[in-house]
Simulated assay, not measured.
Amino acid sequence: MPTYLFTRLVTAAFTASAIALASGALAQSYPSKPIRLLIPYGPGGVGDITARFVAQKMSENMKSPIVVENRPGAGLILATDPCAKAAGDGHTICLTGVGSALNATLFKSLPFDIVEDFTHLSTIAFIDIAMLASSDSKFNSVKDVLAYAKANPGKLNVATINIGSGQHLSAELFKSMAGVDVQIVPFKGTPAILAALRSRDVDIAFEYVAPLISQIRGKLLKPIAIASSKRLSEFPDTPTLHESGITGYEANAWNGFSITAKTPRAIVERLNKEIVAAVNSPDVQQRMRQIGAEARASTPDEMRDLMVRDIAKWKAVIERAKIPLQ
């Protein structure tokens, strides 16, 4: 072998070994200070609670503090933008998810690209949406709802929260896929929806199951159908919308942890390992079930693919519903 080729091979091997050793050392010394977790929602909501469940377990396992900062408002930008622009040292992560996918389609411009400017570490929780009615409603099934809607175009009132929310777009997806003319009525929050159902100002609602668990268990509300692809273990007798005749219908909320794309691979792998361990721990699984959420981890590539699919899916719904961009 010529001397210059031998020299090249030795240099390449040495460089590869040095990089591997450096990456290993980086992962071993990380974290070197408290990790910041930026949450784009206020305290006490489902997103905040699920993130805190996982962060607490990660902190215990890593023996390092994780400092939670709630930064609600401005279309999730107040938490997500500083995360995208943080130093790539792994000490700033943020909660992202379906809300981030919705914003990518609802806003004309954002100061970051939710796909390209981030490495998505792992999903942590999936939160189901349901079609619900008051306990004394005449609607007991999707078949009942569709029969009334088709016989009375424009008269079925469907409650959701704010325009552009996951619940609102789930209702729009139902309207589109079922081919029915219904009135979608947005409210400012879940309490207003509950009041409208009780007073019969609206007929049905699309809302997260998690904050309504106690009302459903107490027979104040009845779930007509689940929006996700499978039934809930909590309510095994409630069918999915897909099973109920809206073939292919699927809508749910999810969230996960993300980090700036500048982060070294060794730190990404370490964080993914810690998140997966926390999400899969028996106590986090149980705590998630108690609030009506499903703890489910992923690989970084799986979370990225989910984000990309949801952006495309909800963009089509937004365009069909002619929801104005912000």
Rank of each mutant, 00 (worst) to 15 (best):
L194F: 03
A266S: 15
H120C: 03
A104G: 15
A293Y: 11
A130I: 15
V54I: 15
R217K: 15
P82N: 08
A251K: 08
T238H: 07
L5G: 00
A321K: 09
V10R: 10
Y30Q: 05
L220N: 14
A178F: 11
G256I: 01
A25M: 09
A149Q: 13
G47V: 00
I39K: 00
G99P: 07
A312W: 04
D48S: 02
A51L: 07
P191D: 10
W254S: 08
D81G: 04
I291M: 12
F118A: 01
G99H: 04
K188H: 05
V158Y: 10
L5N: 03
E172T: 05
G44S: 08
Q56E: 11
N252F: 15
A251C: 05
K322N: 15
F257E: 00
T15F: 10
D301C: 08
L271G: 03
S199C: 06
A79R: 02
T263S: 10
P40R: 08
D237Y: 05
A22G: 11
F187K: 08
A321P: 11
A27N: 08
E250S: 10
S228F: 13
P236Y: 09
A321Y: 10
S17M: 12
A16L: 13
N272K: 06
K273L: 09
Q285D: 00
Q326K: 15
F187L: 12
A25Y: 09
L325N: 05
V68K: 00
V67E: 13
M131S: 02
A266Y: 06
I124M: 03
G179F: 05
V98T: 08
T123F: 01
L26I: 07
D117R: 07
S23D: 15
T105Y: 05
R296Y: 09
V185I: 15
A178Y: 11
L26S: 12
K143N: 07
S17W: 13
F187Q: 09
I129W: 02
C83L: 13
I93Q: 02
S281I: 02
A27E: 13
S165L: 05
N255A: 01
Q56P: 04
I49K: 03
Q326H: 09
M58I: 12
I39C: 01
P153H: 08
I93G: 02
V185N: 12
N255I: 00
F107S: 09
K150N: 14
R71C: 07
L78A: 12
R287S: 01
S134I: 02
E207H: 14
S141N: 07
A293M: 13
G154S: 04
P31I: 02
I184V: 15
A16R: 05
